[in-house]
């Protein structure tokens, strides 16, 4: 199948590749997918004061569409509040990248990675608060 120009552009020049310290209390990490399924995404967010995402990083094992979906997701996440980020829908990724039906699962995985990263960050905050009050 032919790739859209946007997928190729993101896959060739992926944005925000990298690793944040997963033990940092302000960092949330989402690791989704499985090697046996052919795609694994790790998406990380660093949340600043006021619940705004300061930085987002990813690493992805997968096809070009999977790499592009996660790259695009990190671009969108920066500067968003956690609530805004949680509202990210896979359909927006499909639209932006012109993903064909067979690649929709890549966008779903990116949405899952964002949600998992937010959930991880929130769990850390709860733990911190609970730890502080004890």
């Amino acid at each position: 199948m032919a790739y859209s120009d946007k997928v190729i552009e993101h896959a060739e020049n992926p944005r925000n590749v990298g690793t944040l310290d997963k033990d940092d209390p302000n960092v949330g990490t989402g690791l989704v997918g499985a090697p046996a399924c052919g795609d694994v995404m790790r998406l990380q967010i660093k949340v600043g004061d006021g619940g705004v995402i300061e930085d987002a990083r990813f690493k992805t094992f997968g096809c070009g569409s999977a790499i592009a979906s996660s790259s695009l997701a990190t671009e969108w996440l920066k500067g968003k509040t956690l609530d805004e980020a949680a509202g990210l829908k896979n359909t927006s990724i499909v639209e932006e990248l012109n993903l064909p039906p067979v690649k929709i699962h890549c966008s779903v995985l990116a949405e899952d990675a964002v949600k998992a990263a937010i959930a991880d960050y929130r769990a850390k905050q709860v733990a911190k608060t609970a730890g502080g009050s004890a």
Partner: peptide, 13 residues
């Protein structure tokens, strides 16, 4: 290992 085949094919298009 650690690289997905189609992702690689796209990079060597």
């Amino acid at each position: 290992a650690f690289v997905e085949g189609e992702g690689l094919m796209m990079c060597i298009k």
